[in-house]
Design a protein around this nucleic acid. Structure first.
Lengths: 193, 193
DNA sequence: TAAAAGAGAATGAACGTTCACTTTTATTTG
DNA sequence: CAAATAAAAGTGAACGTTCATTCTCTTTTA
């Protein structure tokens, strides 16, 4: 029982990783199930033991990766931190994620800018962001953060990292430690009161 | 001769507009040539009189839309404006474009976040941004703008508008005049010295 | 030895592109 | 200026391929 379940989880992970890699390179609809199966070292038919169909596979992949992303972002974050400390901590964790787990990050940005993920799965993915919204709420109450919508805060503080990561991935721009510090400065400038 | 040419341009535009609408709703690979033809009121075979193949159609659409975007962004911009005036002018034109021409803007953001456009066409699309880069160079020399990379400036000043436009399009967020002013404030805060 | 997991081959639908033909436009000629 | 004809633009149907999914059979696990 233990061994069998373990084996299944490995195959599931292999399928999800293959999906991420192939969708990043070719896009969702240009990625055939047969290639996903080949990269994961299983038969095409086996995919259907783990997922209902191709749409379900990409939905579940999205939710998995989003959960991985937010877990990474909020690791070691502590409600007792000051607003400024907490923001810097989370921001830099997110920057780390986008650079170290760039395959996952690329996959998310593709999903968030195209119609490949269905609405319920997109909703599911949003839920995990609550700690950041709570922090901003506290920052607004303490007068440290501009009293504007969370969408605006996200757009200026967090989202630009996706743009930078894609430029980096395409080789048109190199993100080193100095650039990260400058980007953090820009992020904080844009939202602080 | 005159009438014939005119007719051709109309058909070409109809094809490009159909491509934008359908790719926005379904993604590139889930948009069959037959549907593009139907929406443009032509036969599928007619597409191949105007474009080499499907890839060429989407590349040309991208370049067309990008040119439209930058023409809109720099309309009425004048080199004699001050850095701050010039930036505000361009920024607000871009905001207008994203809101008024949201179909075009959505199409661009899908193209910039997926592998559907080939590299030469992406390069072609970048060229038109020079006036903004020149303005920033001047701003840096005058000490008004942070001395950081143009990619960082773009990421924090311009790119967030795409995120906001998508949220607005998905109905999760409403951009009114007040939000635009707040967004502009955030944009300027993030890049000014 | 029963059940679950997995495999490869088969199936049927959908798609990009081409083909053979028709209609429209432009040019030539009496 | 017509009538005749060449050229261009446009079309619907067909072709060959690809793909998601399923079917039947084999292997592994309990």
């Amino acid at each position: 029982m233990m061994a069998k379940l373990q084996k299944s989880i490995d195959k599931r992970n292999a399928l999800i990783n293959a999906t991420i890699a192939l969708v990043n390179n070719n896009g969702f609809h240009a990625t055939p199930m047969s290639k996903i199966a080949k990269m994961a070292n299983v038969s095409p038919a086996t995919i259907y033991l783990y997922f209902e169909n191709k749409q379900d596979l990409v939905n579940k992949t999205y939710i998995d990766v989003k959960a991985q992303y937010t877990a990474y972002a909020f690791a070691n974050f502590d409600e007792s931190m000051s607003v400024e400390q907490g923001f810097e901590h989370i921001w830099k964790r997110i920057a780390d994620f986008k650079l170290n787990e760039s395959e996952s990050a690329m996959f998310l940005s593709q999903c968030d800018n195209t119609p490949i993920i269905d609405e319920p799965s997109l909703q599911e993915g949003i839920k995990h962001l609550q700690p950041l919204l709570d922090l901003w709420e506290r920052g607004k109450q303490e007068g440290l953060i501009k009293p504007i919508s969370d969408y605006l805060l996200y757009a200026y503080a967090i989202n630009p990292l996706s743009f930078l990561m894609i430029a980096q991935k395409r080789g048109t721009f190199k993100l080193d430690q100095k650039q990260i510090e400058e980007a953090y400065e820009a992020a904080w400038s844009s939202i602080k009161n």
